[in-house]
């Protein structure tokens, strides 16, 4: 029976490419959202902080599956029609943006107070202080939890299959419907997810080894 898996592999791999594309775009967007939300929450004014906090609690307090359905079935009611890919990018980016925000916020908060003092004492402030002293150190501290969140994001994209985006999981389901061999096919699907996520872990390790340690 393993030939079922081999025969369906090209189809699964096409799904895997969609998963990779979706993940890459969402990881970038989620990081950008996360950095902005972290800065807003940590150093923003009252309004910026309020918006960031509402966003964070909304995202963290709602299952992603519910948000996927909401984007797909509710947005058309207000006149916005979303393609599965667009809806997927939207929901996954917003959802993991909240977790990325926590990653960056924690990293910013972990830069020792003495570093702020030293930068300020030299006459740095605002963007210079952040850009020269704080953010470079925070990014190094953010490395491991960032990779962790990326891995969760890759796996999270599987939920977008419920609105008909033919990524890896939905490819698997379609192949199972035709071959009636769920064990082999989902075994293959799981293996592909594992390879993607394990590669990410390895990238993270390599990155950590290359960057000079912050402290």
């Amino acid at each position: 029976m393993p030939n079922v898996l081999i025969a369906s592999l090209p189809y699964l791999l096409r799904g895997a490419i969609v998963t990779l594309e979706l993940s890459a775009v969402c990881a970038l967007l989620a990081s950008a959202i996360g950095i902005i939300a972290a800065l807003a929450q940590s150093y923003g004014g009252l309004v910026a902080r309020g918006i960031a906090l509402i966003y964070l609690y909304l995202m963290r307090g709602t299952p992603m599956l519910v948000m996927v359905f909401a984007a797909y079935y509710l947005l058309p009611y207000v006149g916005i029609n979303v393609e599965p890919m667009t809806g997927g990018v939207l929901v996954v980016s917003l959802y993991y943006g909240a977790f990325m925000s926590e990653v960056f916020r924690a990293a910013l908060a972990s830069v020792p107070r003495g570093q702020w003092d030293a930068g300020r004492a030299l006459g740095m402030h605002g963007r210079w202080l952040m850009g020269i002293v704080i953010v470079p150190q925070a990014l190094r501290l953010a490395g491991p939890p960032f990779i962790n969140t990326c891995i969760m994001l890759v796996k999270g994209t599987s939920l977008v299959s419920v609105i008909g985006l033919v990524e890896l999981t939905l490819s698997g389901r379609e192949v199972v419907e035709r071959t009636l061999a769920p064990f082999q096919v989902f075994g293959g699907v799981a293996l592909i997810y594992f390879v993607i996520c394990y590669s990410l872990s390895l990238c993270g390790k390599a990155l950590e080894a290359r960057l000079p340690h912050a402290h």
């Binding site: 020792p112 003495g114 570093q115 003092d117 030293a118 930068g119 300020r120 004492a121 030299l122 006459g123 740095m124 402030h125 605002g126 020269i132 002293v133 470079p136 150190q137 190094r140 000079p212 340690h213 912050a214 402290h215």
Partner: peptide
């Protein structure tokens, strides 16, 4: 404003108990 304070600080050097060199 922070900008003005920063200007004054640039003319005042400081060394700290915990050194606070930029580790990166």
């Amino acid at each position: 404003p922070e900008r003005e304070i920063a200007k004054a600080r640039a003319a005042i050097g400081m060394a700290f108990q915990s050194f606070n060199l930029f580790p990166h």
